[in-house]
Each structure stands twice: as C-alpha cells, then as structure tokens.
C-alpha cells in the first residue's frame, strides 16, 4: 500500500523538479531590486573617519617636502585654475568632480604611496577622502586646514609674543626655516646676504604609478 503511494508520488517527480526550477528562476525575476552596496561597511568608514591618522599637519607636510620623501603623493583636489595659481611643490591636480575618472584611479587606488589630499580648506579634501575611503582605497590622509592653514603656519608663521613658551619659539624658527625653503624672503635675511632668495619654482612632476591590472581568474571546461 505504501509502495503504491510512493510509486504514484514518484511518477510526478520530474514534474515537481521542473516546477522547482521554474519557481526558483521566477523568484529571481520577482526579487526586489536594490542598489548593491559597494565599498566598505559604514562602521568601518566611521572608524576610519574618527581615527587621528586621518589628518596630517602642515608641519609634517613641510618636513616631508623638504626631506623629499618619495613615498608621499600630494593631490590637489581644487579646480585646475587654482592649481595653476598656486599649489604645493610636486602636487598632482585631481579636481574633485573628476575624482573617479579612470585616468586618476591609479594615483588613488594603490598601496605604494601615502596620499595627502588637500584643498583651500580641508572640506573638499575631506569630501574626496570620504568618497575614496568608501571605495576602500588605502593610505589616504587629509592636510589639516588645507592651503589656508599652510599659509598661516608655514609660509607666513605668526611671531610668538614674548610671554609664550620656549617651544612656541622653537616651532616658529622651524617654520620660518621651512618658509625660507619654500621661497619666502625675510628682510633681515636679505640684508645679511646680498644674494636675494630666489622664488622656488613649483615643479609639476608626474609620479608614475603602476596601474593595477585586474586579472580574471582563469578556468574553463
């Protein structure tokens, strides 16, 4: 009796399998579509955003440039016009609206250099930082305060008043020396040396970056 029932049910087995196949395939059509989440998880992004590693100070940048550290890339995210007026030495211009262009991907999405993003203030640079971090690009920093802060601290450092600590004076003299490197002439220095300090030419070199090749995994029948 049981066997006969079983046989009766199993005579439909191909029908049942066909129905399962159609149901599964139809389910794919009916699935609600959603934009697949690209990039890193929100928690991770937040973790990176509040990390103190995110910012780099102008003093650090100045010493990197003076020591000609080859492991850093400076990327100017302002528009081309402002970049042509003034930028950090050896900086690369990637305007914010062209940030995701394929030509520039090799500069941002790599693991060999540390990238310092900067703009006039640090807001646009932060925007670029967020976008690139969501795509899980590595080693990105933001110049704290941007170029405005760069002018206030390095190019035109404020003289400490007499009642300030000795460290402030030390910092001032370091910054003053740095500003001389970047071509600022001080009156007392000009008097001493008859040779006027030359305005350093902002060199715009292009650092070659190997383009990452995405190799497909090979296989086949």
């Amino acid at each position: 009796m049981i066997n006969r029932k079983l046989a009766k049910a199993s005579s439909f087995r191909y029908m049942i399998l066909a129905c399962i196949l159609i149901l599964l395939a139809g389910g794919l059509v009916l699935l609600p579509k959603y934009q697949q989440h690209e990039g890193i998880k929100p928690q991770e992004l937040l973790g990176r955003a509040i990390s103190p590693e995110r910012y780099i100070s102008t003093d650090e940048v100045a010493s990197l440039i003076i020591n000609q550290d080859p492991s850093y890339l400076f990327i100017d995210v302002r528009d081309e016009e402002s970049y042509n007026k003034y930028s950090l030495p050896n900086a690369i211009n990637i305007p914010l609206d062209k940030l995701l262009d394929e030509d520039f991907e090799a500069y941002l999405n790599q693991d060999e250099y540390d990238v310092v993003l900067f703009s006039n203030d640090h807001f646009y640079a932060n925007e670029a930082w967020i976008i690139c971090n969501r795509l899980d690009y590595k080693n990105l920093r933001v110049l704290e305060g941007g170029l405005n802060n760069w002018f206030h601290t390095i190019i035109n450092p404020t003289k400490p008043t007499e009642n300030m600590a000795a460290t402030a004076f030390e910092l001032y003299s370091t910054r003053k020396a740095a500003s001389m490197y970047f071509g600022v002439a001080y009156p007392e220095q000009v008097k001493k040396e008859t040779v006027p300090a030359k305005k350093a030419v902002v060199k715009k070199t292009i650092v070659p970056v190997k383009k990452k090749k995405k190799m497909p995994t090979e296989g086949g029948c």
Binding site: L21, L24, A25, L28, L31, Q36, H37, P216, T217, E218, G219, G220
Partner: peptide, 20 residues
C-alpha cells in the same frame, strides 16, 4: 540560478568570475 542568487545575497561577486 545558484550564482545569481548568491550574487544577489552578496556571497559571490559575479564580476570577478571567469568568463570564457
């Protein structure tokens, strides 16, 4: 069907699969 479901659920990235 299996690959499409797994891609939908985020277990497999279909763009990384080998296409002959």
């Amino acid at each position: 069907i299996g690959v499409l479901y797994m891609d939908y659920l985020g277990y497999v990235d279909m763009t990384q699969l080998y296409v002959h």
